[in-house]
Nucleic acid binder design. Structure first.
Lengths: 316, 316
DNA sequence: TCGGTTAATGAGTAATTGCCCAAGACCGAG
DNA sequence: CTCGGTCTTGGGCAATTACTCATTAACCGA
């Protein structure tokens, strides 16, 4: 029996154990005897099923406060989509909850029988959301990345999610075989003139729906931490008033894009039209708050998925 | 604060507790302190969230054995849909697993943006499936019942699920305001001539997809236990070779409908076309086995959702 | 074939959860 | 206002689950 078969069997067993536990309501001891393993192994299988994402938990009840916050956000910022999930006071996670909600929204779009084009950004939040997606056949849809997938060191950019999505669902995916930042404006423009890139860019421009994350520009800015920009570049952006970035495009607290600096070199596609399509920002947490507020005010996005605390702060 | 508000708040809290438990991964003690209640109350809220169906657990991993059984069933009986869920050896439940799978399949159809018509039968299995449905807006779809909803004692037939479905999702639903069995063939035909009934019947006939359960005709036949037929009628059906019924239509082990007897009086709609639509039978367990086999052989249905053990028995 | 390394296993134990029961709150009827 | 009944609450305890750790088995390269 080959290595991969063992692995498959293991996941198979995990799925079976998870099924017996979560659906059939067996105790782990019962599962152990039914599967002919020790209680400890059964426990491991169950937790494996959970950690591997075989088990998806969904909670559908419209919690009153979340609903009303969403409604207010929609009105205040003329949003086409607003979703608010409960907050976990005390948790420091910046993805918990919103990634599940984002996943559900992405899934909803992908269930469409009409072929659609989905554009997607980068980041931890989106990555977590994609991991929640069920395996499904979406071969009639197209998923296109808004950002380059090459990290400064030449490796694949870790938080570029286009490959994760292609992995989770069966679809035609269009990565952007580019560095995230070119070395100069000239080089960026040159790269964008390449036929393949050009067609991917125009595909992105006509996306029906777009899901993007947001990175702050504080001392632990993802762009800086992940090595896409240097410390001095970060400082310069901060000095120019930059508060956040979306797929690499930095902007100030009014949502105005920073002139020059790194924005000259971002190889990302422009953010698709908010007139003709839905652009959903997924994010939560105090660090992102100024950025989210700016993005909403200048209508860089027309959809938002966030949590209760952030929603309240946005409305305050 | 009114009674209903209290109830709503309670479910709201339950949802919040369930969210903190299942999504955010808090312990019940943490939830208790965050929600400002005792640990026991938190525990109650979490279990309420589960029992009220606010929390939906889905397991998506193609368990190899289930997949191959489904594939074989599809081939052997020329099915358009076959789904096999794991069995819980030892459990006596006749709905566990298949109802979840049926719910997922129903949901898939209801997610369609094209308006569709869904026909639905009766029974414990389907009732359990409907309870799993998430709240969703399906006002562009129509859901029609295949059977009358009036029990012999004049009350609403308990296992008629059309009201449950209308309760769970927002849709135009079409019940059949009829007894399940008329007193005679003549009366049945007369009832079916009434304009409203007639239009509901023709709506059922053009359903895009149909979900039905199956009842055995053994000593504990649901039809008999629920008081729809008398003991002597049951005996007569058995003597005539009847092994099972679908929405009241009884048939023998070859799938041939029993001539005369109760079939003359069934007020149910005929089972929709297997040529032009998908008719899915949902059921599992040894008691139903002869019935399921018969239904598949004579193509009373062209779709099946069942469990491993039943699938294996069908293929043996 | 042999060491070295890694992964899997089972025992024991701490943490967490589910359940039962008694006490108290609430409500309607008298 | 009081009584009887029902529902809710929290304490305590038994059952269940998660984690740690030492041991064993499996694997891999030489």
């Amino acid at each position: 029996m080959s290595r991969s078969e063992i692995g498959a069997n293991r996941l198979d067993d995990a799925a079976r154990a998870g099924w017996l536990y979560y659906i059939a309501g067996n105790t782990q001891e019962e599962i152990a005897s039914k599967l002919g393993v020790s209680r400890q192994s059964a426990q491991r299988l169950v937790s494996l099923a959970m950690s591997e994402g075989l088990v998806k938990v969904r909670l559908d009840h419209p919690i009153a406060n979340c609903l009303s916050l969403a409604e207010e956000l929609r009105k205040r910022f003329s949003l086409d989509l607003a979703e608010v999930v409960p907050s976990d006071p005390g948790s420091t996670s910046t993805t918990i909850g919103v990634s599940q909600a984002a996943s559900a929204e992405i899934e909803k779009w992908l269930r469409s029988v009409e072929p659609i084009t989905v554009a997607i950004g980068t980041g931890r939040t989106l990555k977590a959301a994609i991991e929640q997606l069920p395996r499904m056949d979406c071969s009639h849809h197209r998923v296109v990345s808004l950002t380059g997938n090459i990290a400064p060191d030449g490796s694949a950019a870790y938080y570029n999610v286009i490959f994760n999505i292609a992995d989770a669902i069966k679809t035609r995916s269009f990565p952007m075989p580019l560095p995230v930042f070119a070395s100069s404006r000239k080089e960026r423009d040159l790269l964008h003139e390449q036929p393949m890139i050009k067609s991917t860019l125009s595909l992105a421009a006509e996306a029906n729906v777009t899901f993007i994350g947001l990175g702050d520009l504080g001392p632990e800015a993802p762009l800086y931490v992940d090595g896409f920009i240097s410390e001095s570049e970060l400082k310069a952006l901060q000095k120019a008033g930059g508060v956040a970035e979306i797929v690499g495009w930095t902007f100030d607290e009014t949502g105005k894009f920073i002139e020059g600096l790194t924005n000259d070199r971002v190889a990302s596609a422009p953010i698709p039209s908010r007139e003709k399509s839905l652009v959903v920002l997924v994010g939560m947490g105090g660090k992102k708050l100024p950025g989210i507020r700016a993005a909403l005010r200048r209508r860089i996005v027309n959809g938002l998925i966030t949590d209760e605390l952030t929603a309240e702060a946005l409305l305050a």
